[in-house]
Write a protein that binds this DNA or RNA. Structure first.
Lengths: 231, 231
DNA sequence: TAGATTGTTAATCGATTAACAATC
DNA sequence: TAGATTGTTAATCGATTAACAATC
């Protein structure tokens, strides 16, 4: 693309109910606000100001108000936000008004930990299947599930209606399994495999790499401390 | 801060060996380059161009070269980069020239999975301790370690020389444990607890929240698909 | 009304990209 | 030398922040 013809964004004008694009950084923070609001709700708190919600979420109130402005105006000037009301609207904006069905591929330590992790169910994600390639593991119980053979990936994904997949498997096989998952029609993938995965356009891939997180910490630690130089 | 007096950055001029600040986004990507380089190395590839390294890392070559420019000039024009040489320099820039000692607090599903995860050791992180509060769990074997009582947190951190801590415990107790870890002198913390933690200045805290990752996927999925509306 | 707090604007800051001169 | 590829510059793009008018 050199000079003329900037790609015209077809859904930008007004065009019906087309929800506006929320900046990625704001989407990530909206999940924090939702979490904070839900814990306020659990404490019986009915109203919050942008200042207190921002503090509970670890962001500035300026950032908070700007982020909320992307999804609408759900506050009252001079008063604040009604907790439940705002929580519902953030959930709606994030697409969390119905449950999502999650399949986990890989029943090693991490896969099992994820399958049993209460934090998914409580936030609207149903784990509906878990797979492994090892015949010694297939058939084992993990939480409420039995481990399926990864050979049966496609039919089981179809039968369970899974629309999200978590990859918790070795780097060496991640791309192969990822391809099969995509071919089976899944468009949302969360990968814990420490490798770069290629996916076609229209497939959403997010990555979590725990060793990478430690490496980033190491960088900052080295700058400030300069620890036990075992000379 | 209104008009005059932009904060003068004390270490910007030249001033001795003071390593320049690398932008956060670049630090995160340097870990990807390092991973890609090490897998090139394992394949016996000795030289890479910015184009091929960028592709293997899932970024643009422009971004790659800019990122590398923050740590120095380790390539040869017309030729590319020597894999091992660049790998060493990135590792040095990230503070990965010596091993880091990691303690895990929480020996539940996730904590155990992390303790056994081979990806840490292979990238220079030694897991030296794992803690739990449950007396039924204390003393159990997890990988090469025995679970310590979290009551003994301070002495065990000291004895093992842990300089990084991973929190893999419930949201309700995370802040308390975090405070103790900080008081014990640890300045690098990776938290998997789904809660905002407050830490003093000078402590590096990174957060991984798996449910949040799924929520972000849900937002994008809802925008493109609009799945199984169970009307 | 007076006090409080939102929603929005405009300014600043940082990150990404394209392009190309430098140079192997 | 001719071809290739880095390192760097300048332009663009997106994110954050401060400030305040709108308004409950």
């Amino acid at each position: 693309m050199t000079s003329l013809e900037s790609t015209p964004s077809a859904f930008d004008g007004d065009g019906g109910a087309a929800a506006k694009q929320i900046p990625p950084a704001a989407v990530a923070r909206l999940t924090l606000y939702l979490r904070a609001l839900n814990s306020f709700l659990a404490e019986g708190i009915e109203t919050v100001s942008s200042d207190s919600l921002a503090e509970a979420s670890g962001v500035s109130s300026s950032t908070l108000r700007k982020d909320l402005s992307y999804i609408g105006s759900y506050g009252t000037r001079g008063v604040g936000y009604e907790v439940q009301y705002l929580s519902r609207h953030i959930a709606a904006a994030l697409g969390l008004t119905h449950d999502w069905k999650v399949a986990i591929v890989g029943a090693g330590n991490l896969g099992k930990a994820l399958a049993r992790y209460g934090g998914f169910e409580s936030r609207g994600f149903d784990v509906v299947a878990i797979f492994d390639a090892d015949q010694m593991v297939v058939g084992n119980e993990v939480g409420w599930l039995r481990v399926s053979d990864v050979q049966d990936l496609e039919p089981v994904l179809k039968r369970t209606g899974a629309n999200m997949v978590v990859l918790a498997l070795p780097a060496t096989v991640a791309q192969d399994v990822c391809n099969r998952v995509v071919a089976a029609g899944v468009r949302s993938i969360l990968s814990f495999a420490p490798v770069v995965l290629q996916v076609p356009d229209g497939v959403n891939l997010r990555k979590v790499d725990m060793a990478t997180e430690l490496q980033i910490l190491a960088y900052h630690a080295q700058r400030t401390q300069t620890p036990g130089r075992t000379a």
